[in-house]
Computed example of a mutant assay.
Amino acid sequence: MKHLPGDGSRKKLNKTARTIATICARGGSKGLPRKNVLAFGGRPLIAHSIEQALACPAIDAVYVSTDDDEIADVALRHGAQVPYRRPAELASDSAAKIPAIEHLVRHLEALGEVIGTVVDLQPTSPLRAQADLAAALALAGRAELVVTVTEPSHNPYYTLVEAGADGRMHLSKPADFARRQDAPAVWGLNGSIYVWSRAGLAHAADAGFWAVSMLASPMPRERSVDIDDALDFELAEWYLRRQQALVADSRP
């Protein structure tokens, strides 16, 4: 494993089980090139997630896993630790995120760190609030994983459709509901926050995401934008300006 000067990888580590934040950010992005370091609200996109994690009293340290030197430099400038550059096999377009998180956590444990909880923050979800982090962390320990969710715009019992073998459309979850409000509540994973128990993360790395016990922590749609392309970026900027205007209007 390559260690780079100034990355904080040789820092003396605490032996008490801690809660750490991980932020996984690859250099490659096809939907919106270099999106993790694009200016968003006057700061690089990834800086928002780093600053949110640093401001959370329940999080003891913030680590960024990246294969990219520019992202690493930005992360270090904004207070995160970057122990190494992520191996290429964990940074391809087809690479899953759970192995990258597990790789980072095992690296820290090999250095002597004792980790009890891993709060993974998606860098492309900059609109989360401290209340969202607090709500998700309040559920930690009740399941192997806490995921943030939001109410989707379409309900599989009422409006989501798919093609059958004959090519004709039908409801994804057929049921006899006259109104959308009568259908069971469903949630969409928004990807913003994942709170893993250490054992749960290891279990998922071995058996897959859906193999772990899971609880949901709801977030409002206006804080759930996941930036994948330029349209998402523009929408997130609009929501950010809206949030800032509401804060300004509430001041005496």
Score class of each variant (00 low, 15 high):
residue 151 E to D: 05
residue 151 E to V: 07
residue 151 E to M: 01
residue 152 P to E: 09
residue 153 S to R: 13
residue 153 S to G: 12
residue 155 N to Y: 01
residue 156 P to H: 07
residue 156 P to C: 03
residue 156 P to V: 03
residue 156 P to E: 10
residue 157 Y to A: 04
residue 157 Y to T: 10
residue 157 Y to L: 08
residue 157 Y to R: 12
residue 158 Y to S: 09
residue 158 Y to K: 13
residue 158 Y to V: 11
residue 159 T to C: 09
residue 160 L to A: 09
residue 161 V to Q: 15
residue 161 V to I: 11
residue 161 V to F: 02
residue 163 A to P: 11
residue 164 G to E: 15
residue 165 A to P: 13
residue 166 D to H: 15
residue 166 D to F: 14
residue 168 R to N: 13
residue 170 H to P: 05
residue 170 H to R: 12
residue 170 H to T: 07
residue 171 L to P: 03
residue 171 L to F: 07
residue 172 S to F: 01
residue 173 K to L: 06
residue 174 P to R: 02
residue 174 P to A: 10
residue 174 P to E: 01
residue 177 F to Y: 13
residue 177 F to E: 02
residue 177 F to H: 06
residue 178 A to H: 02
residue 178 A to P: 06
residue 179 R to C: 04
residue 180 R to W: 04
residue 181 Q to N: 09
residue 181 Q to F: 02
residue 182 D to Q: 09
residue 183 A to K: 13
residue 183 A to C: 15
residue 183 A to Q: 11
residue 184 P to T: 10
residue 184 P to A: 11
residue 185 A to H: 11
residue 185 A to G: 15
residue 186 V to L: 02
residue 187 W to R: 09
residue 188 G to I: 15
residue 188 G to E: 13
residue 188 G to F: 10
residue 189 L to P: 04
residue 190 N to V: 09
residue 190 N to Y: 04
residue 191 G to I: 06
residue 192 S to M: 09
residue 192 S to N: 14
residue 192 S to R: 10
residue 193 I to S: 00
residue 193 I to E: 07
residue 194 Y to V: 00
residue 194 Y to T: 03
residue 194 Y to K: 04
residue 195 V to G: 01
residue 195 V to S: 03
residue 196 W to C: 06
residue 196 W to K: 01
residue 198 R to N: 03
residue 198 R to S: 02
residue 198 R to H: 06
residue 199 A to G: 06
residue 200 G to V: 01
residue 200 G to M: 03
residue 201 L to T: 04
residue 202 A to M: 04
residue 204 A to L: 07
residue 205 A to H: 06
residue 206 D to Q: 10
residue 206 D to E: 15
residue 207 A to M: 03
residue 207 A to F: 03
residue 207 A to D: 07
residue 209 F to M: 07
residue 211 A to C: 01
residue 214 M to G: 04
residue 214 M to K: 15
residue 215 L to C: 08
residue 215 L to H: 08
residue 215 L to E: 14
residue 216 A to D: 11
residue 217 S to F: 07
residue 218 P to A: 10
residue 219 M to L: 07
residue 220 P to A: 12
residue 221 R to C: 01
residue 221 R to I: 10
residue 222 E to L: 03
residue 223 R to F: 08
residue 223 R to H: 13
residue 223 R to L: 01
residue 224 S to C: 04
